[in-house]
Design a protein around this nucleic acid. Structure first.
Lengths: 230, 230
DNA sequence: AGTTGTGAATTGCTTCACAGCA
DNA sequence: TGCTGTGAAGCAATTCACAACT
C-alpha cells in the first residue's frame, strides 16, 4: 500500500473503466477477479491494473485477486460517485437535451437539475424531468439547487459567456462541449470534449494506414490470394 | 525534418488543436505565427509545438515562425481533412441526431450520409439533411454511399451488433459513444467516447481537492481575511 | 500454487538548450 | 537578431520480474 499521493489524469480515466468492468463482472455473477481478468476487459495489462489500483490502496489479496463488490465500492468512493453532483447544462440544443435525458449520467450520481437557454421559445419546456430556464436565471438556480458542476453545450460564440456565468454562480467544475477552449480561473476544474477531434483521430489513422500500405507494397488488407493451380 | 515515423495518439490530438488555433489566428488576420504564440493558444509550450510539428515535416522558417495558411494546409492533409469521409450513424436517438445536425462535422469533411435505427416509427424521417433507415438497410446503404466511418450512438445492448454490422458492411473506422467497449477486428480503427467518464474525471478532481484542502488546513479558497485592527 | 504489490528496468513523452539558418 | 529544428537531459508512465503472502 502507498499513501494517496498525486493523481495522473490517465490513471483516473482507467479507474472509470475498471469501475464499469467490475459492474459487468458482477452482473455475470462473479465474486472475485484477478488483475489479469480485469486487464483483459479493458484491454490493458495485469501489471498496469495492479499499479493503478495499488497507487490508491491495497485492495486485493495475494493468491486470490480482488473481491469485486468491495473493489467496486472503493473505486466508487475514489471517483466521487458515492455522492450526488448537482449539474447544470447550458445550451438546450440537441446535445444538451441528449445529456439531460441520458439515464446513465443520473445513475452515476450526476443529477442534471436544470437546463439553460437563450431562446425564449424553449424556456419552460421540460426535458428528461428538468426544466429549461432563461440564461438570466442561471445564478439564482445554481445557488438554490446547490449546483457544483456545469456542462456547456452552446455554440462556440456563447461558450465563454456561459463559462463566466457558471463560475460566477459558483460551480467548481465545467465540462465543455463547445468547439472552442474556455478560460476559467485556476481554481475551477475544466475539461474539454470535442467530437470533431475524436473523428479526426480516426481519419488520421486511416490516412496513415493507407500511406503505410503504399510504402510496403505487400498485402493490402485482404490476404494474398493463393492462385489456384491450373 | 525527420521522416514521418510513428504517430503517438496524443500528438495527433494536439495537431487537431493546432489546426483550430490556426483557423482562429487566420480569422484575426494574422499571416505568420511563432511556436510560442501557437503554444499559448492551446495552453502548451513552444518546445512541444516545435517537436510535434517537426515530427511531420519542417514547416517553419527560422527567425520568422510558421506561415499560417501553409501550415494549416499541411495539418489539414496530415489529419486527412482534405477529403470527404462519408459517415454513417447507428442510433437515431438524441445524440445521433445531434451529431447529424452538427454543422461542425460536415465542415471538417465528415459527411453524415445516413442514420440507422431499429425503431420503425423513425424510419423515413429526415434529420439535418439525411434520412433515417432501417437497420437492415445498413449494408446496402454503406456500400452504395461508400461509407468509410461509422458512429455508434445506440444503447449499450445494441452497440456490439451495430459494430459488427458496420464492420461487415465495410467501414474502416468506428467512433463508439455507447457506454460499453466494442470488439472489432484488428484492421478496424475504433475509438471510444464516454460522456460519463469525462464527468467522473471532474468529480475525482473535486474530491481530491477537498481531501487536499482538509489535509493542509490553511486557506479554503477565499484568501485569509486580514483582521481589521481595532 | 496462485496472485498481489512494488522496486528496478524500460519505454515514451516533454523540456532544455543551443546550433543553424533566415 | 529571432525563431526553428533537434540532440541530449529530464521526467513520467509502463512493463518486468520477483519477494511476500494466502
Amino acid at each position: 500500500m502507498s499513501s494517496p499521493r498525486k493523481a495522473p489524469e490517465i490513471t483516473v480515466r482507467r479507474l472509470s473503466l475498471y469501475f464499469r468492468a467490475l459492474d459487468a463482472a458482477l452482473r455475470e455473477g462473479r465474486k472475485q477477479i484477478s488483475s489479469g481478468d480485469l486487464a483483459e476487459r479493458i484491454q490493458s495489462s495485469s501489471a498496469q491494473v495492479r499499479r493503478d489500483l495499488s497507487s490508491f490502496g491495497s485492495f486485493g489479496t495475494r493468491g486470490h485477486g480482488y473481491e469485486i463488490a468491495s473493489l467496486r465500492e472503493h473505486l466508487r468512493a475514489i471517483l466521487g460517485l458515492d455522492r450526488t453532483w448537482n449539474t447544470a447544462v447550458v445550451g438546450a440544443g440537441r446535445l444538451g437535451t441528449a445529456l439531460a435525458s441520458h439515464g446513465e449520467l443520473e445513475r452515476q450520481g450526476f443529477r442534471i437539475v436544470a437546463l439553460f437557454d437563450r431562446d425564449p421559445e424553449k424556456i419552460g419546456e421540460h426535458v428528461g424531468g428538468c426544466s429549461i430556464f432563461a440564461l438570466e436565471q442561471l445564478e439564482p438556480v445554481v445557488q438554490s439547487e446547490a449546483v457544483t458542476l456545469g456542462v456547456i453545450t452552446t455554440p462556440a460564440e456563447a461558450a465563454q459567456e456561459s463559462a463566466d456565468r457558471l463560475v460566477q454562480a459558483g460551480v467548481r467544475g465545467i465540462l465543455n462541449f463547445a468547439p472552442v477552449p474556455i478560460i476559467v480561473p485556476q481554481r475551477i476544474h475544466a475539461r474539454h470534449v470535442n467530437l470533431t477531434i475524436e473523428l479526426e483521430g480516426l481519419s488520421f489513422a486511416l490516412v496513415e494506414e493507407e500511406t503505410k500500405r503504399r510504402r510496403l507494397p505487400k498485402s493490402a488488407g485482404a490476404p494474398p490470394r493463393i492462385r489456384p493451380r491450373p
